[in-house]
């Protein structure tokens, strides 16, 4: 007999594999975006403003963050608020399985999907456009895990503060665009200087973008950026734990 928690996680993975739209936004869309941008000739020109890197080089970490945003803001809260609204969590609360196991399952399957997406993006960039692989593997790993942790924190916090699935969509939309902007999806945050850049560095994805770029270029990420992500992670998870309702 498998433990109830393992059974719930296994079921959630199976169900997630049926969510084609979620898989598209998390796994396929970031790669597609990278390919489309890479086809633009100017994105492949070396630019002295970015330390002689090309725009397409900067977009590899950006598309990595993009899949995290899609998972944590678009798909995970929608699933979980739906589960709460339709009574799935309440129903599970009447069995020996803890309703928290379904939360854990959702966090895990989204983390795995994001990791798969990141791998595809990094390999695709390398093979098709010759983008550099992360030079500081340890630095990249630390930055990556913190970025993932803060993303999942955003997702669970949205789920926790949204009383209904509809409210979750609204909160998600409000959070979505600033996250896209600070992650550098619209244009790499490197184009900004001065105060704007400093402010962006205090946001979860601004700091994540700095840290991933540093690690990609070969240096260990700045402690300040790691601390910003760590701080957000703690705050968001506290919000989630405090505000989460099962029924």
């Amino acid at each position: 007999m498998t433990s109830p928690t393992v059974a719930v996680i296994r079921t959630e993975s199976r169900l997630f594999a049926r969510e084609r739209l979620s898989l598209f936004w998390i796994v396929l869309f970031p790669s597609l975006l990278l390919v489309v941008l890479g086809l633009v000739p100017s994105f492949r020109e070396h630019n002295p403003d970015f330390g002689d890197r090309r725009l397409i080089d900067l977009y590899v970490p950006v598309t990595v963050l993009l899949s995290m945003i899609m998972a944590s803001i678009m798909t995970m809260p929608a699933t979980l608020t739906g589960y709460r609204e339709s009574g799935v969590l309440r129903r599970l609360g009447t069995t020996p399985a803890k309703p928290a196991s379904i939360l854990l399952g959702q966090v895990l399957v989204h983390a795995v999907a994001v990791a798969a997406s990141s791998l595809v993006v990094i390999v695709l960039g390398r093979v098709v456009f010759g983008t550099p692989l992360p030079e500081s593997l340890l630095g990249y790993g630390v930055a990556y895990l913190l970025a993932l942790a803060v993303s999942l924190g955003i997702g669970t916090a949205i789920t926790a503060v949204s009383p209904t699935a509809k409210a979750g969509q609204v909160v998600g939309m409000v959070v979505f665009f600033p996250c896209m902007f600070t992650a550098g999806v619209y244009f790499p945050v490197e184009v900004f200087g001065g105060t704007v850049r400093d402010v962006i560095s205090f946001t979860p994805y601004g700091a994540a973008s700095n840290a991933l770029n540093d690690a990609a270029a070969g240096s260990f990420p700045a402690l300040a950026d790691l601390a910003v992500m760590g701080g957000w992670t703690v705050v968001l998870h506290l919000i989630a734990v405090r505000a989460f309702r099962w029924g």
């Binding site: 007999m1 498998t2 433990s3 109830p4 393992v6 059974a7 719930v8 079921t11 959630e12 199976r14 169900l15 049926r18 969510e19 739906g82 589960y83 339709s86 009574g87 799935v88 309440r90 129903r91 069995t95 020996p96 399985a97």
Partner: peptide, 19 residues
């Protein structure tokens, strides 16, 4: 109280059996 929308009848029965 509903179940996950895409879970099949058999999967639900197996899941509950594991509890």
């Amino acid at each position: 109280a509903k179940l996950q929308p895409k879970i099949t009848v058999q999967e639900a029965l197996e899941l509950w059996s594991a509890f």
